[in-house]
Design a protein around this nucleic acid. Structure first.
Lengths: 76, 76
DNA sequence: ATTTTGGTTATCATAAATGATAAAATAAGT
DNA sequence: ACTTATTTTATCATTTATGATAACCAAAAT
Protein backbone atom coordinates (compact mmCIF):
# COMPACT_ATOMS: atom_id res chain seq x y z
CA UNK A 1 0.00 0.00 0.00
CA UNK A 2 1.32 3.43 -0.80
CA UNK A 3 1.63 6.58 1.27
CA UNK A 4 -1.53 8.11 0.00
CA UNK A 5 -3.72 5.13 0.79
CA UNK A 6 -2.27 4.90 4.28
CA UNK A 7 -3.01 8.56 4.86
CA UNK A 8 -6.55 8.16 3.61
CA UNK A 9 -7.15 5.19 5.88
CA UNK A 10 -5.69 7.06 8.83
CA UNK A 11 -7.83 10.16 8.39
CA UNK A 12 -10.86 7.95 7.78
CA UNK A 13 -10.34 6.09 11.02
CA UNK A 14 -9.74 9.33 12.85
CA UNK A 15 -12.95 10.94 11.66
CA UNK A 16 -14.97 7.83 12.36
CA UNK A 17 -13.53 7.49 15.83
CA UNK A 18 -14.17 11.14 16.66
CA UNK A 19 -17.69 10.93 15.35
CA UNK A 20 -18.49 7.76 17.28
CA UNK A 21 -17.09 9.23 20.48
CA UNK A 22 -19.78 11.85 20.10
CA UNK A 23 -22.50 9.37 19.21
CA UNK A 24 -23.48 11.19 16.10
CA UNK A 25 -24.59 9.24 13.03
CA UNK A 26 -22.87 9.72 9.71
CA UNK A 27 -25.99 11.19 8.20
CA UNK A 28 -26.27 13.84 10.87
CA UNK A 29 -22.64 14.84 10.68
CA UNK A 30 -22.79 14.86 6.91
CA UNK A 31 -25.86 17.05 6.98
CA UNK A 32 -24.31 19.52 9.38
CA UNK A 33 -21.20 19.70 7.21
CA UNK A 34 -23.16 19.94 4.00
CA UNK A 35 -21.48 16.91 2.56
CA UNK A 36 -23.18 13.88 1.08
CA UNK A 37 -23.53 10.94 3.42
CA UNK A 38 -22.13 8.70 0.71
CA UNK A 39 -19.13 10.97 0.57
CA UNK A 40 -18.60 10.80 4.31
CA UNK A 41 -18.94 7.05 4.21
CA UNK A 42 -16.24 6.86 1.53
CA UNK A 43 -14.07 9.22 3.50
CA UNK A 44 -14.32 7.21 6.70
CA UNK A 45 -13.54 4.06 4.76
CA UNK A 46 -10.34 5.63 3.45
CA UNK A 47 -11.64 5.81 -0.07
CA UNK A 48 -10.91 9.45 -0.64
CA UNK A 49 -8.24 12.07 -0.24
CA UNK A 50 -10.28 14.89 1.26
CA UNK A 51 -9.67 18.55 0.65
CA UNK A 52 -8.71 20.94 3.41
CA UNK A 53 -12.08 22.63 3.31
CA UNK A 54 -13.93 19.36 3.73
CA UNK A 55 -11.80 18.53 6.74
CA UNK A 56 -12.36 22.00 8.12
CA UNK A 57 -16.12 21.64 8.03
CA UNK A 58 -15.92 18.22 9.66
CA UNK A 59 -13.58 19.50 12.36
CA UNK A 60 -15.84 22.45 13.04
CA UNK A 61 -18.88 20.25 13.48
CA UNK A 62 -16.99 17.84 15.70
CA UNK A 63 -15.94 20.75 17.84
CA UNK A 64 -12.22 20.39 17.29
CA UNK A 65 -9.50 22.24 15.42
CA UNK A 66 -8.14 21.41 12.00
CA UNK A 67 -4.85 20.74 13.69
CA UNK A 68 -6.52 18.20 15.94
CA UNK A 69 -8.41 16.37 13.26
CA UNK A 70 -5.27 15.70 11.25
CA UNK A 71 -3.32 14.65 14.30
CA UNK A 72 -2.89 11.12 13.04
CA UNK A 73 0.17 9.94 14.90
CA UNK A 74 -0.29 6.93 17.15
CA UNK A 75 -4.00 6.88 16.62
CA UNK A 76 -5.37 3.38 16.33
CA UNK B 1 -15.30 36.50 0.89
CA UNK B 2 -16.52 33.10 1.97
CA UNK B 3 -15.18 30.55 4.39
CA UNK B 4 -13.46 28.49 1.76
CA UNK B 5 -11.55 31.40 0.27
CA UNK B 6 -10.42 32.53 3.69
CA UNK B 7 -9.18 29.05 4.47
CA UNK B 8 -7.32 28.86 1.19
CA UNK B 9 -5.66 32.20 1.78
CA UNK B 10 -4.70 31.19 5.30
CA UNK B 11 -3.10 27.90 4.30
CA UNK B 12 -1.38 29.63 1.41
CA UNK B 13 0.16 32.22 3.68
CA UNK B 14 1.15 29.55 6.14
CA UNK B 15 2.96 27.44 3.57
CA UNK B 16 4.68 30.44 2.06
CA UNK B 17 5.80 31.68 5.43
CA UNK B 18 7.13 28.28 6.48
CA UNK B 19 8.93 27.87 3.19
CA UNK B 20 10.53 31.30 3.34
CA UNK B 21 11.66 30.75 6.92
CA UNK B 22 13.66 27.87 5.52
CA UNK B 23 14.95 29.84 2.54
CA UNK B 24 13.84 27.27 0.07
CA UNK B 25 12.56 28.37 -3.33
CA UNK B 26 9.13 27.27 -4.53
CA UNK B 27 10.67 25.26 -7.32
CA UNK B 28 12.81 23.26 -4.93
CA UNK B 29 10.02 22.56 -2.50
CA UNK B 30 7.69 21.68 -5.33
CA UNK B 31 10.24 19.29 -6.77
CA UNK B 32 10.81 17.58 -3.45
CA UNK B 33 7.08 17.19 -2.99
CA UNK B 34 6.51 16.05 -6.54
CA UNK B 35 4.07 18.81 -7.20
CA UNK B 36 4.15 21.27 -10.06
CA UNK B 37 5.72 24.60 -9.25
CA UNK B 38 2.71 26.30 -10.81
CA UNK B 39 0.50 24.34 -8.50
CA UNK B 40 2.50 25.39 -5.46
CA UNK B 41 2.38 28.98 -6.57
CA UNK B 42 -1.38 28.81 -6.85
CA UNK B 43 -1.60 27.15 -3.48
CA UNK B 44 0.50 29.81 -1.76
CA UNK B 45 -1.59 32.50 -3.40
CA UNK B 46 -4.74 30.97 -1.95
CA UNK B 47 -6.01 29.89 -5.32
CA UNK B 48 -6.63 26.29 -4.46
CA UNK B 49 -8.19 24.06 -1.83
CA UNK B 50 -5.44 21.49 -1.40
CA UNK B 51 -6.01 17.83 -0.63
CA UNK B 52 -4.76 16.22 2.54
CA UNK B 53 -2.11 14.27 0.68
CA UNK B 54 -0.72 17.39 -0.95
CA UNK B 55 -0.47 19.07 2.45
CA UNK B 56 1.14 15.95 3.88
CA UNK B 57 3.91 15.97 1.32
CA UNK B 58 4.53 19.66 1.85
CA UNK B 59 4.58 19.24 5.62
CA UNK B 60 7.00 16.33 5.35
CA UNK B 61 9.40 18.29 3.21
CA UNK B 62 9.18 21.29 5.48
CA UNK B 63 10.02 19.06 8.40
CA UNK B 64 6.80 19.60 10.32
CA UNK B 65 3.68 17.62 11.12
CA UNK B 66 0.37 17.77 9.32
CA UNK B 67 -1.09 19.09 12.51
CA UNK B 68 1.42 21.91 12.50
CA UNK B 69 0.98 22.93 8.90
CA UNK B 70 -2.76 23.40 9.32
CA UNK B 71 -2.36 25.28 12.56
CA UNK B 72 -3.79 28.46 11.13
CA UNK B 73 -5.03 30.28 14.18
CA UNK B 74 -3.56 33.68 14.84
CA UNK B 75 -1.06 33.34 12.06
CA UNK B 76 -0.60 36.56 10.18
C1' DA C 1 -42.13 -10.17 10.35
C1' DT C 2 -41.65 -5.70 9.30
C1' DT C 3 -40.50 -1.14 10.03
C1' DT C 4 -36.76 2.03 11.42
C1' DT C 5 -32.10 3.40 11.63
C1' DG C 6 -27.37 3.65 10.28
C1' DG C 7 -24.27 2.43 7.06
C1' DT C 8 -22.46 0.81 2.62
C1' DT C 9 -21.90 0.50 -2.23
C1' DA C 10 -22.61 1.57 -7.16
C1' DT C 11 -23.22 4.71 -10.77
C1' DC C 12 -23.11 8.92 -13.19
C1' DA C 13 -22.41 13.96 -13.52
C1' DT C 14 -19.99 18.04 -12.22
C1' DA C 15 -16.64 20.82 -10.17
C1' DA C 16 -12.20 21.41 -8.96
C1' DA C 17 -7.33 19.86 -7.83
C1' DT C 18 -3.42 18.78 -10.07
C1' DG C 19 -0.19 17.96 -14.10
C1' DA C 20 2.10 19.84 -17.88
C1' DT C 21 3.90 23.41 -20.40
C1' DA C 22 4.98 28.03 -21.73
C1' DA C 23 5.29 32.83 -21.35
C1' DA C 24 5.60 36.94 -18.74
C1' DA C 25 6.68 39.45 -14.71
C1' DT C 26 9.66 40.45 -10.77
C1' DA C 27 13.56 40.39 -7.92
C1' DA C 28 18.37 39.72 -7.04
C1' DG C 29 23.15 39.60 -8.45
C1' DT C 30 26.77 40.96 -10.95
C1' DA D 1 22.18 47.46 -18.28
C1' DC D 2 22.39 42.70 -18.28
C1' DT D 3 22.00 38.25 -16.73
C1' DT D 4 20.15 34.88 -13.59
C1' DA D 5 16.91 33.15 -10.36
C1' DT D 6 12.40 33.09 -8.68
C1' DT D 7 7.70 33.67 -8.97
C1' DT D 8 3.41 34.47 -11.22
C1' DT D 9 0.05 33.75 -14.60
C1' DA D 10 -2.41 31.59 -18.43
C1' DT D 11 -3.96 27.67 -20.84
C1' DC D 12 -5.24 23.05 -21.62
C1' DA D 13 -5.54 18.09 -20.32
C1' DT D 14 -6.23 14.70 -16.87
C1' DT D 15 -7.40 12.92 -12.60
C1' DT D 16 -10.13 12.89 -8.73
C1' DA D 17 -13.08 14.85 -4.92
C1' DT D 18 -17.56 15.71 -4.38
C1' DG D 19 -22.63 15.92 -5.50
C1' DA D 20 -26.63 13.47 -6.45
C1' DT D 21 -29.33 9.61 -6.42
C1' DA D 22 -30.58 4.96 -5.70
C1' DA D 23 -30.26 0.38 -4.22
C1' DC D 24 -28.74 -2.65 -0.88
C1' DC D 25 -27.21 -4.52 3.80
C1' DA D 26 -27.32 -5.16 8.72
C1' DA D 27 -28.99 -4.43 13.18
C1' DA D 28 -32.04 -3.07 16.34
C1' DA D 29 -36.60 -1.88 17.89
C1' DT D 30 -41.09 -2.49 18.15
Amino acid sequence: MDDKEQLQLAIGKRVKSLREERDIPQQDLAAKCNIEKSNLSRLEAGGTNPTLYTLKRIADNLGISLCDIVNLEDKK
